[in-house]
Amino acid sequence: MKIKVGVLLLALLSGCDNSPEPEKGFAGLGHQAEAFIPVVPGRVFNFPLDHGPHDGFRIEWWYVTANLKDDQGQEFGAQWTLFRSALKATPEQSGWSNQTIWLGHAAVTSATVHHAAERYARGGVGQAGVSLAPFKAWIDDWHFSSQATDEDPLADLQLSARDKAFNYQLRLTSTRPLVLQGDKGFSQKSEQGQASYYYSQPFFQASGTLEIDGKTYTVSGPAWLDREWSSQPLTANQTGWDWFALHLDSGDQVMLYRMRQKDGAPYLTGTWIDAHGQTQLLQADDISLTPQDTANVAGRAMPVSWSIKIPGKHLDITIGALNPKAWMDLRIPYWEGPVQLSGSHGGQGYLEMTGY
């Protein structure tokens, strides 16, 4: 469950007046969206078509995180995200009449450094977009594009982003199947039924180069792609979330998210993905997710260490941030960075925390 900032971006770009706004949840994502297509159970996914944009839905994203090491074992993280936000529910127009806003986020993290950057674009003029045959997602000179020549456009991809303080060029490959999150791709976010369509490719292997502050490293490691689209993924009562994507040394993968609320207990769910790509939906009763140590980050107390227990899978681990200061100091700020696992299972992963 990745950060979904597009709805707030729409508000910023659409102007405002002095009238008080009703509560809309974190980043405006609880705002009612009657004109857009609702997310309902039972969707039949269609690949490769679903790798592309979805007209009629208000918000979607292409989101990659990678846990990387160099030849000396030094650890890094890389993030690449493209958000698509629709200003209107009508069919997409061409040129400057286009009603789509694109937003890109990219970041790199080491144990001592974290750099983040963002890009904005209007749709319809070629500055950003997603196309199929071949698959390509881009904003300015940031690219996530297929190198595959067979029927699976996600089998072999090139990922690149650059800013003043960083640059990475990564190749992502996988022969494993895609994973439908939640109930066959219907990912519920609240007891009231808010949801997204959500699938992942958690089995990527990444390799390439990463440059931080003028120094270049040859790196490799596991990577994770998330694809989600929705029209109203949150309720107005939900203030933010904690999202975990974990690569276990056993070959299994785990996705968890905890949706925090102003009133009541958090909404907690996840997916256990075995080494062959078979999934099991995890309910709140299956999971114990407890914040441990906090760090003062950008004037906020951030829980950068967590205890995670899934007794039915004999999982009892502690995760800790590679760099507790992995604050995305962007127009809409949040925390996101690589984590390390210890306890019953070793491994690595990514943690995102919003709304603190």
Rank of each mutant, 00 (worst) to 15 (best):
E60R: 08
A137G: 11
W142P: 10
V40W: 00
W96E: 01
D150C: 06
T271F: 02
A265H: 08
F57K: 00
P266D: 01
A301N: 09
S288A: 11
R43Q: 05
D274H: 10
W61V: 11
G346E: 02
D183N: 13
P222Y: 04
F76H: 04
F186I: 01
L246T: 12
R331F: 11
T109K: 12
Q232H: 05
Y168Q: 06
M353G: 07
D242N: 14
K215H: 14
G129R: 11
H314V: 04
P291R: 08
T239R: 10
L246Y: 06
D70V: 12
D263F: 10
V113S: 11
S344P: 08
Y198D: 05
L281F: 14
L180W: 03
Q232P: 02
Q181S: 13
H314C: 05
A265V: 13
A121P: 10
K309W: 02
K136P: 02
I212C: 09
F76S: 03
V40C: 03
A295L: 04
T318V: 15
Y199S: 02
A11G: 15
H114W: 11
D50F: 13
H314Q: 14
Q72F: 09
S174G: 01
Q181N: 12
V125D: 00
F144G: 03
L12D: 04
P177E: 00
T269I: 07
A116P: 10
K189P: 03
T81V: 15
W102N: 09
T271K: 07
K313I: 03
W224L: 06
P38Q: 04
H115S: 09
V304Y: 10
L268E: 01
I273M: 00
Y63A: 03
P338D: 00
Y197I: 03
N67G: 14
G320V: 03
I310E: 01
L12S: 07
T109R: 14
D286N: 15
A133W: 07
S207Q: 15
I273R: 03
L210K: 04
A223C: 13
G25T: 12
G251C: 04
S305C: 12
I317L: 09
H276A: 14
A35S: 15
Q74G: 05
T290H: 08
Y168A: 08
A33Y: 04
R260I: 15
R43T: 01
D252V: 00
R300S: 12
F204E: 01
S97M: 09
S305L: 00
P38L: 04
S231W: 00
V339Y: 03
A298H: 12
L9F: 07
A35I: 00
P177K: 13
G312A: 13
D140V: 05
